[in-house]
Design a protein around this nucleic acid. Structure first.
Lengths: 221, 221
DNA sequence: GATACCGAACTGGTATCCCAAAGTGGTATC
DNA sequence: GATACCACTTTGGGATACCAGTTCGGTATC
């Protein structure tokens, strides 16, 4: 694997894992030293992470994108459009046995599972479901949206009750999809996405003070 | 304006304007010489154009993305999802006077207008309509989709009848939106997008031989 | 002590070099 | 004439040197 992809992957992991706080300044030279790469791959990584929305330009410098409540609300609307469209396509397919694999992902999480795993599976559920649509653009849209939501979702994962509710909703969506009931599946998916957003934005607004204290920039809606 | 943005913009224009044919090989050194910039900004431009889908990697080298019929079909489905969602948001707004500006764009095209202008306005109609939704992600999705469609749409613009039909459909969509009739507007927009796709894919499939003769790579569905 | 000013240090942007590997063309061999 | 092989060229990936603009600390001045 090339240096370029390595820097990109490792830097993305640090940002998504909150090892580098939202709003923090980044310098190309710091990344260079941190990962033992030269500026060429570092710049390539920053350019790609910029298109993913994980870093941005702050005047003449680089900044880890802050958590933006207004953005989270808009992403939910976007997700609703693309995920529902993808799900309807999947419902229209004849072959839906791949749903079993997704259900197994949900089953793999129990009380002994690490929070990181719940976090990952919660995203992969939506991403893999979108992949089943067979539409590359809907799939990428969902994957990119989940990437942008990833950091904020660490909050949701801390809430046991919210996780239980989310998993139940995931299962209900799968059940309706399995039956090919597109309308019911779409209704439940919409409700799930909007519900998640509301819980997320509420708890983020409440935790804002605490997050800022940890050095995490959170821009209000 | 920095070199980096210049190279990116000018190279994008050459690709979208078919001055560099779909499927053509690109070397960083050629671009370097062509635009009088060094490799650093050239590579930055290529990385960004790659995320826009205009160039891709062919083994170790760069290639102008071919026109891909399967991709065109998938984009139409994607567009339908995001544009309809955006339009419904706009219909739900109180303030819709901005629609006048869009209508004026359509009016600015008549029999004396250059084909390039029809081409541009035909895309901007959809982009500006999506912008009115106020949702940044839906807007960007539409803009990026139109960019990917841009080269293939040169064909549609050659067909006088297709243009007339498209403009009539655009006006009907605007009319329904103005009335706040979201369902009617959505129906008409869906029909327009899918209809455009069918006409486009058909004429592309027919012209494939001619396009290949001009050196344009066209990959079938 | 406050402030205006100056320079050292650091920033991203750019140019340029080096490198390993993939490609290319010619040639010797059969 | 086909093919295997080798030297040379060209490629993108990486590293580094340099630049202009900005920032920021310290200092001289009042």
């Amino acid at each position: 694997m090339s240096q370029m992809q390595n820097v990109e992957r490792r830097l993305r992991e640090m940002i998504l894992g909150l090892e580098i706080g939202p709003g923090e300044k980044l310098t190309e030279r710091w990344i260079e030293g941190r990962f033992g790469a030269s500026r060429t791959p570092v710049r390539a990584a920053l350019l790609r992470l910029e298109t993913e929305g994980l870093v941005g330009r702050d005047g003449r410098g680089w900044t880890v994108s802050p958590i933006n409540l207004a953005e989270l609300e808009q992403i939910a609307v976007y997700r609703e459009a693309v995920e529902v469209a993808a799900l309807r396509l999947t419902c229209a397919h004849d072959e839906r046995s791949a749903l079993d694999v997704i259900e197994a992902m949900l089953d793999s999480c129990d009380e002994n599972t690490r929070r990181e795993e719940w976090h990952r599976v919660g995203m992969d559920f939506h991403i893999e479901l979108a992949r089943l649509s067979g539409n590359e653009f809907l799939f990428r849209a969902v994957r990119d949206a989940m990437t942008r939501l990833s950091r904020a979702r660490w909050l949701e994962v801390r809430d046991e009750a919210a996780l239980g509710r989310a998993w139940a909703e995931h299962r209900a969506i799968l059940a309706a999809t399995r039956l090919g009931d597109a309308d019911e599946a779409a209704r439940r998916l919409s409700a799930h996405i909007i519900g998640s957003r509301d819980r997320l934005v509420t708890s983020l607004a409440n935790d804002r003070r605490g997050l800022r204290a940890r050095g995490f920039a959170v821009v209000p809606a």
